[in-house]
Simulated assay, not measured.
Amino acid sequence: MNLNNLEDLKKEVKDLGFNPKVADELEKNMKPLPGHFTIKDQFPGDRGVVDMTLHFHKSGQSDTYNLNKYEVASGKVPPTVENQQYMVLTENKDNKEKPLVRTFESPNEAIDFFKKQKGNSELALGESPDSKQILASKENGKENYINKDFRSAYFRPAIKQTFYLKDGQGFNARQAANMVQDRTVFRDNMMTRDGEPYKAWVRLDFDQKKDDWGNHRFKQFHHPTFGFDLEKTLNAYKIKELADPAKKSEIMDAMRQGDRVQVTALNKENKEVKVMAEAVPRYSKLDFFNDSGVRQKREQFEKPLINNLSQGRGQGKGKEKELEESRGMKV
């Protein structure tokens, strides 16, 4: 095993923002020198867990490995509690009293595996098969039961996207987790096909047909061409934390990563309200949500003197100024 390569990969996954367990699992996966191996990771999401699968490929000319892509899936499945796991139980032809059990770190993978079963099977959650909660079941390959609290997660497919990396550069884990949750992130290290650097806000385009590899296309809002100014947009709202330069900087940094940030906003009655805010560069606005994820009317938090100006700015851009398609650009 190439120890320099191991050290480099540990730094790479750390710089990309993956959880420490990814770096911890690298050595044991590299030791047997397989041609390819994967490591799983998870991030919390607003609607459920965000699963990540990192792909490491061995060079054909040496014993070094590269992380060239990772797959991300965001569903509506809540994370498991401690000591519980998702499992699929299938019929054991050799012993009908003892079903075959396969466990999963990823609830989204468990659902996908269960849906492919042709015979009698169960999708369950629990510490063991003996203390399981049945979430769904099949008889002769057809669903005959879906837990009512699990139906939304089961019938609404997870949003999936593959993110590609080159020399450790690309969308980081935090950005990717936000993008599959329909949020926009800022990249200042992008390159055109001709090798020219540029900056842009980027989101996944869920309105267009996927590409030939099953990925959502990217929608870009170039900076400064498109005209979205995060600081000016923030200043158009009555947000208490903006009075503190350090907190304002933290909020801006988090929003560039695509985070939904908790802030204290003042409504029309000048009462403080704790809300979650996220940047929406497409319309030069912020969106606000309560603790339950329900969208709030942004107008109640706008500064009176800027209200009309900010509305006009968002409407004036519209779709006609969405220069993000820009042919010749890549991410």
Results as ranks from 00 to 15, higher is better:
residue 180 V to M: 06
residue 248 K to L: 02
residue 140 N to M: 10
residue 154 Y to F: 15
residue 211 D to C: 02
residue 105 E to H: 11
residue 259 D to Y: 02
residue 73 A to H: 01
residue 77 V to M: 12
residue 176 A to F: 00
residue 258 G to Q: 01
residue 114 F to D: 11
residue 66 N to Y: 15
residue 129 P to F: 04
residue 273 V to I: 14
residue 93 K to L: 14
residue 330 K to V: 13
residue 264 T to K: 15
residue 67 L to P: 05
residue 76 K to A: 11
residue 252 M to V: 11
residue 318 G to K: 02
residue 243 A to F: 11
residue 317 K to T: 09
residue 92 N to W: 08
residue 33 L to E: 08
residue 22 V to M: 09
residue 137 S to L: 12
residue 203 R to G: 05
residue 146 I to K: 12
residue 217 R to F: 04
residue 146 I to S: 08
residue 177 A to T: 06
residue 111 I to T: 08
residue 152 S to D: 15
residue 33 L to D: 08
residue 302 E to Y: 02
residue 176 A to H: 02
residue 243 A to M: 13
residue 227 G to V: 08
residue 260 R to F: 02
residue 160 K to L: 01
residue 181 Q to G: 07
residue 104 F to S: 01
residue 89 L to W: 10
residue 17 G to W: 04
residue 256 R to A: 03
residue 158 A to L: 09
residue 302 E to W: 01
residue 152 S to P: 07
residue 235 N to Y: 14
residue 78 P to S: 13
residue 112 D to L: 08
residue 32 P to M: 01
residue 16 L to W: 04
residue 118 K to R: 04
residue 198 Y to C: 07
residue 202 V to K: 00
residue 200 A to E: 09
residue 4 N to L: 09
residue 305 L to E: 05
residue 168 G to M: 10
residue 79 P to C: 01
residue 232 K to W: 15
residue 279 A to T: 00
residue 119 G to I: 03
residue 64 T to H: 10
residue 205 D to K: 05
residue 13 V to P: 05
residue 287 D to T: 06
residue 137 S to I: 07
residue 86 Y to W: 14
residue 123 L to F: 13
residue 11 K to T: 05
residue 226 F to A: 12
residue 329 M to G: 14
residue 88 V to I: 12
residue 33 L to N: 10
residue 147 N to F: 06
residue 200 A to N: 12
residue 109 E to K: 06
residue 147 N to M: 10
residue 104 F to Q: 00
residue 53 T to P: 04
residue 20 P to R: 13
residue 139 E to L: 13
residue 92 N to M: 08
residue 271 K to F: 03
residue 197 P to A: 02
residue 101 V to F: 00
residue 186 F to T: 03
residue 89 L to E: 11
residue 189 N to V: 06
residue 322 E to D: 15
residue 274 K to F: 01
residue 246 A to P: 00
residue 186 F to C: 03
residue 166 K to L: 15
residue 125 L to F: 07
residue 143 E to A: 14
residue 106 S to Y: 11
residue 168 G to W: 10
residue 224 P to S: 02
residue 277 A to P: 09
residue 185 V to H: 02
residue 97 E to G: 11
residue 294 V to R: 08
residue 163 F to I: 09
residue 190 M to V: 13
residue 317 K to M: 10
residue 127 E to R: 13
residue 301 F to E: 03
residue 208 Q to Y: 02
residue 233 T to A: 14
residue 119 G to F: 06
residue 296 Q to W: 06
residue 98 K to I: 03
residue 207 D to G: 08
residue 108 N to F: 05
residue 17 G to P: 01
residue 189 N to L: 04
residue 108 N to M: 05
residue 82 E to C: 01
residue 18 F to E: 07
residue 61 Q to H: 12
residue 291 D to A: 11
residue 283 Y to W: 15
residue 317 K to D: 04
residue 191 M to P: 04
residue 182 D to P: 07
residue 95 N to G: 03
residue 200 A to M: 10
residue 47 R to D: 15
residue 224 P to Q: 01
residue 87 M to V: 07
residue 125 L to P: 09
